[in-house]
C-alpha cells in the first residue's frame, strides 16, 4: 500500500473530536502543516488501547507546523516550528 502523502506535501489534521483514546492532540486538530518524514507503519493505538491487536498497521507521518499558524497569539519569532506525529487516517490534503 503506497503512502497517501509524500515528504513536502501540505496536509491538514482533521478537525474531529471522537471520544476515546487518541494520539492526535486537541491543539493540532484543524491545523495545516508540511510532511517532514514518513515514520513508518505502526499498530493503531486507538485499537491497542482497548485490547485489540492494532492491526492493520497505520502509516505514521511526522508533520511540521509553523507555530504562528497553530497559536494565533504566538509571541515568538515567525520562523519557529512544532513537529508532531500524525497517523494517516487523521490527515487530509490541504
Amino acid at each position: 500500500m503506497t503512502a497517501m502523502f509524500k515528504v513536502g506535501d501540505k496536509v491538514t489534521v482533521k478537525r474531529t473530536h471522537p471520544p476515546g483514546h487518541r494520539r492526535t492532540p486537541f491543539y493540532i486538530r484543524g491545523k495545516a502543516g508540511i510532511v517532514e518524514r514518513i515514520a513508518g507503519n505502526f499498530a493503531n493505538p486507538e485499537e491497542l488501547a482497548y485490547g485489540f491487536d492494532g492491526e492493520p498497521r497505520r502509516r505514521l507521518y511526522r508533520v511540521r507546523f509553523m507555530q504562528t499558524e497553530i497559536w494565533p497569539r504566538y509571541d515568538g519569532p515567525a520562523q519557529d516550528t512544532l513537529d508532531l506525529e500524525v497517523f494517516e487516517h487523521w490527515l487530509e490534503p490541504a
Binding site: G20, H21, P45, L48, A49, Y50, G51, G54
Partner: peptide
C-alpha cells in the same frame, strides 16, 4: 498491560 491500555486507563 499494554502501554496504550495504561494510557487509556490514565486518561
Amino acid at each position: 498491560c499494554r502501554v496504550d491500555e495504561l494510557r487509556r486507563a490514565l486518561e
